[in-house]
């Protein structure tokens, strides 16, 4: 899948932001296999960018295209299709169903478009060290546990691009490395691209391209 950004800027940013940014106001083109690391200090619009790309917000100027189709022209039904088949996301604020167990949360996502069988949930949880927490309601889990569940959730569906917004903010380096390892396996399995937005350089992400926001 082709992802194209054309001169985008959040409507709530001043035009001057375009000058020093590798993304705002630029024309960029990404495709499957690209591993993009976006390094962005706080307040530079990292979360905004991920939300724009996932069409959770549309308050930006310029255009985003998926396979040459402007994202703004997608119907709600087409957006649902895109999120189900081609675009996966790890959001910074996690968003789990608090009353449901981690397993239920994962199964709700998995059944939508099963890329893996249900057994894969336990296997992945085991690798990331949350297997014993699968039957606990999400609201009773720590941020670190929730974050690992959210990462697994993003890997249960097919995708061409994986969007990640500070996916390891609540994890220590050892757990973050394990998570990254799993993510890269799954990305390679799908020959997908990654857009990974993080505060600092994370040296264990094999980026093909660095961009400063």
């Amino acid at each position: 899948m082709q992802l194209t950004l054309k001169n985008i800027l959040p409507t709530y940013f001043e035009q001057g932001r375009k000058q020093n940014s590798g993304i705002w106001g630029k024309d960029l083109h990404f495709s499957n296999g690209d591993l993009i690391k976006i390094v962005a200090p706080s307040g530079t619009g990292k979360t905004s960018l991920i939300h724009f790309l996932y069409r959770m917000r549309i308050d930006f100027e310029g255009s985003i295209f998926y396979d040459n189709k402007p994202l703004k022209h997608f119907s709600n039904e087409e957006i649902a299709n895109l999120r189900r088949n081609q675009l996966s996301v790890v959001l910074q604020d996690m968003r789990l169903f608090g009353e449901q167990t981690l397993f239920q949360n994962l199964e709700i996502k998995r059944q939508l478009n099963p890329f893996h069988p249900p057994e894969k949930i336990a296997e992945m949880a085991e690798r990331l060290g949350i297997a014993t927490r699968l039957n606990a309601p999400a609201k009773n889990c720590s941020y670190g546990e929730q974050q690992r569940a959210v990462i697994i959730r993003a890997l249960l569906q097919p995708f061409d691009f994986l969007l990640m917004d500070e996916p390891f903010s609540h994890l220590d380096e050892a757990n973050a490395r394990k998570a990254m390892e799993l993510i890269m396996e799954e990305v390679q399995l799908r020959r997908a691209g990654v857009i990974f937005a993080e505060l600092e350089r994370v040296d264990f992400f094999p980026a093909t391209q660095f961009i400063h926001l």
Binding site: N76, E77, A80, R95, I108, K109, L112, Q157
Partner: peptide, 14 residues
């Protein structure tokens, strides 16, 4: 909130 999250996950509104 739940419905919004379902839509975010890719559930079809239809």
């Amino acid at each position: 909130e739940s419905l919004q999250l379902l839509l975010t996950l890719g559930y079809s509104p239809r």
